[in-house]
Amino acid sequence: MHPWVSLFSGGKDSSWALYRALEADHPVERLVTVHPAGDSYMYHVPATDLAALAAESVGIPLVSVRPDDFGAEDVDDAGAQGDAELEPLEAALADLARDLGGIGGVTAGAVESSFQTDRIRAMCERLDAALFAPLWQEEPRDLADAMLDAGFEIRIVQVAAAGLDESWLGRTLDAAALADLETLNDRYGVHILGEGGEFETLVTDAPHMDRRIELAYETEWDGTRGRLRIEDAWLD
Rank of each mutant, 00 (worst) to 15 (best):
A179Q: 12
G196H: 11
A176R: 13
V45T: 02
D186Y: 13
H208G: 05
V111H: 05
F8R: 05
R98D: 05
A51E: 05
M123S: 10
D76M: 12
G109C: 02
F199I: 06
W4I: 06
D77T: 04
Y41W: 13
Y188R: 07
T107V: 06
D39T: 14
V157M: 04
R171G: 04
V75C: 04
D142S: 14
A122V: 11
D83I: 11
G11K: 00
I192D: 09
D232L: 13
L7R: 00
P3G: 13
S57P: 12
L178F: 09
Y188D: 10
A162Q: 13
A108P: 15
L178W: 03
F115K: 00
T33S: 09
G197R: 01
P88I: 01
R229D: 14
R211K: 09
G197Y: 07
H208L: 08
A80K: 09
M42P: 08
L228Q: 10
D83A: 12
E200C: 11
A97Q: 02
L50H: 04
E85D: 14
D142V: 12
G59T: 10
V203K: 11
R229G: 05
L135C: 09
P207F: 01
H35G: 02
V106L: 10
A144T: 07
I120L: 14
D186K: 13
A91S: 12
D99E: 13
L202D: 00
D77S: 06
T219M: 02
A179R: 15
P207L: 03
D142K: 13
S9Q: 06
R227C: 11
T204Q: 10
P36C: 03
Q158I: 01
A51N: 07
E198Q: 07
D186V: 13
V5N: 06
T201Y: 00
P27Q: 00
R211Q: 11
H191N: 13
I154M: 09
R126I: 07
I154K: 09
L7Q: 09
D149I: 10
V5Q: 05
D68T: 15
A175E: 14
L31S: 08
P207S: 05
W136M: 11
E153D: 11
A55L: 09
P36H: 01
D205M: 07
R141M: 15
V190Y: 02
V32T: 10
P3L: 15
S9E: 01
H2W: 14
